[in-house]
Design a protein around this nucleic acid. Structure first.
Length: 565
RNA sequence: UGGGGCGUCGUCAAGCGGUAAGACACGGGUCUUUGGAUCCCGGAUUCGGAGGUUCGAAUCCUCCCGCCCCAGCCA
């Protein structure tokens, strides 16, 4: 019996279902995630990871992790480690199926020799510039290389000597012999091997010739028995070449390449090149800066793998170029964190409150709910005393309409505390600024209850001043101030950075239990947002918090819409 | 002017000839010891445009328009 499908099928699942219906590949599904180890993974890669590993899980197949390490000049071991850590953190497992294209260099070389023997490849001794010049243009065909009809034996000899290291970089390349007049530039005798006297991070100097992507990728897929080779749209033009190579070599396994649209997110950039620039130019503090769309950045920011996977599920898979609203990612995060994050009280911008009729030497332990969404999370005690800190934003001397929080003469609830009424303020003698608010409390309202049933418009959070933990809190906002920084044609994207993407706050006052918060753990600071303990800069007993995402704040929203009367 | 793709609500995205799902965002309301969460309700008379086929078209055909990718010895 088939279970009713909750999600409509995307076009890739449709293809797979059709394949299985005719028992293609004996009904197996084998996918692969093939990163090049030349940078850190980002949320766009997460989409691909969720897709490939997700299909394997769903169809009872497997997904390989394969490093596409065919260009030693830009690849590093550091990236391999981070990529594996990120894929695991996202919750996926490649089991024993960890591969490297470089593991196939010998086989790939043999395939190249076979192609030469079949008269389908030749050693071309034109320079890179000459090859470019003879490639033609988008509308004009290219010119055939004078080396195109080199005798077979000479090709074999030259190719062997290329491998043997007899020639300097650039002296020769191996080219597939296809069609210099093809409308598809990838088919105009593409380069398959180049000479590169560069040590490889895994094979050392065993090789001085390295295969190009088009040659290595399809054959690596074939060697691994991949059934569905899923990649992004820009490789659509390469599919004829993918199929040509596998066809000419008549390999037993000929995977099907399927292309989908890569992820674009508003207010950020997604190209490794641009992300690298942000890192190198010091616009962020590294690949794992909490403002980066990298997996490591999102992790440090406090995103959960669950939220990212949910997001990848919701955005769907299609072929249309698209730009997904960052608000959706944040929504997925809030939904996950709302369910799981323990609540705590924290005052980011402290304003002192003195409760005039509360005994100076009294400290009460007030019971607070850890997570109203999850009764099993229990309760905790929070100390309450005569002097507290409240949020500056929660008090206004002359409250505008629709501001329901504390103001002179007004009564509000201190969450889990008491109802208090503002009876005055103390000003700075110099500046006239409000230094503290003076209140009286109603002893009958302990815990924030109202035995007489009276209503107050607002409930605000607070922290007992003598018990507070002082801490640093970092507030993050969008990295860029425009929706699509990558689209700007005449402005460098780095000029579009949001100057307020990071706000460092010191002297924040947190409820004392937070001193024990462990790095990486997350909390909801009531009424403010979700925060996590920074995994890099926190010290025992002295956590640094990152704001992961704000809570919806309708007052803040009203303010943005325009000044209120 | 070459080749390859794509165009359904502000943003994603179902729909596959039988009369436009859903999500986010947005607006309104309910509720509330987080102005959070929850819960309701509202929205495309129409599917890039124009023709055509059909009893019937977002779905089929024709033409047109727009957007994206390709001229690395990068992936």
């Amino acid at each position: 019996m088939n279970e009713p499908l909750t999600q409509p099928l995307n076009f890739i699942k449709r293809i797979i279902n059709d394949d299985r219906a005719v028992n293609k590949n004996d009904g197996r599904v084998v996918t692969r995630f093939p990163p090049e180890p030349n940078g850190y993974l980002h949320i766009g890669h997460a989409k691909s990871i969720c897709l490939n590993f997700g299909l394997a899980v769903e169809y009872g197949g497997r997904c390989h992790l394969r490093f596409d390490d065919t260009n030693p000049s830009k690849e590093e071991t550091e990236y391999i480690d981070s990529i594996m850590a990120d894929v695991r953190w996202l919750g996926f497992d490649w089991g024993t199926h960890l591969y490297y294209a470089s593991d196939y260099f010998e086989q790939l070389y043999d395939f190249a020799v076979r192609l030469i023997q079949a008269g389908k490849a030749y050693v071309c001794s034109l320079s890179a510039e000459e090859i470019r010049a003879s490639r033609g243009t988008l509308t004009e065909p290219g010119q055939e290389s004078p080396y195109r009809n080199r005798p077979l034996a000479e090709n074999l000899d030259l190719f062997a000597r290329m491998r043997a290291g007899e020639f300097p970089d650039g002296a020769h390349v191996l080219r597939a012999k296809i069609d210099m007049a093809s409308g598809n530039l990838n088919m105009r005798d593409p380069v398959s091997y180049r000479i590169m006297h560069t040590a490889h991070h895994r094979t050392g100097d065993a090789w001085c010739i390295y295969p190009m992507y088009d040659f290595a990728h399809c054959l690596s897929d074939s060697i691994e028995g991949i059934t569905h080779s899923i990649c992004t749209l820009e490789f659509e033009d390469h599919r004829p070449l993918y199929d040509w190579i596998l066809g000419e070599l008549a390999v037993a396994c000929h995977p099907q390449q399927i292309e989908f649209a890569r992820l674009n997110l508003t207010y950020t950039v997604m190209s490794k090149r641009k992300l690298l620039q942000l890192v190198n130019n010091g616009h962020v503090r590294g690949w794992d800066d909490p403002r980066m769309p990298t997996i490591s950045g999102l992790r440090r920011r406090g995103y959960t793998p669950e939220a990212i996977r949910d997001f990848c599920e919701r955005i769907g898979v299609a072929k249309k170029d698209s730009m997904v609203d960052m608000a959706l990612l944040e929504h997925c995060l809030r939904e996950d964190l709302n369910r799981r994050a323990p609540r705590a009280m924290a005052v980011l911008r402290p304003l002192k409150m003195v409760i005039e009729n509360y005994p100076a030497d009294l400290v009460e332990e007030m019971e607070a709910v850890n997570n109203p969404e999850n009764p099993a999370a229990g309760t905790r005690n929070v100390p309450f005393s005569r002097v507290l800190y409240i949020e500056q934003d929660d008090f206004m001397e002359e409250p505008p309409k629709k501001f329901y929080r504390l103001a002179p003469g007004r009564e509000v609830r201190l969450r889990y505390g008491y109802l208090v009424t503002c009876v005055g303020v103390v000003r700075d003698e110099e500046t006239g600024e409000v230094r503290e608010v003076r209140c009286t409390y109603d002893p009958a309202t302990r815990g924030g209850t109202t035995p007489d049933g009276r209503k107050v418009k607002a409930t605000i959070h607070w922290v007992s001043a003598p018990h507070a933990l002082e801490a640093e809190v970092r507030l993050y906002d969008a990295l860029f101030s425009v929706e699509n920084p990558g689209a700007a044609k005449d402005v460098d994207f780095q000029e579009l950075l949001n100057p307020d993407s990071l706000t460092m706050l010191t002297g924040c006052r947190l409820e004392p239990a937070l001193a024990e918060a462990v790095p990486g753990s997350f909390y909801q600071f009531e009424r403010l947002g979700y925060f996590c303990v920074d995994a890099g800069d926190s010290r025992p007993g002295q956590p640094v918090f990152n704001r992961t995402v704000t809570l919806r704040d309708t007052w803040a929203k009203l303010q943005q819409k325009g000044p209120q009367e």
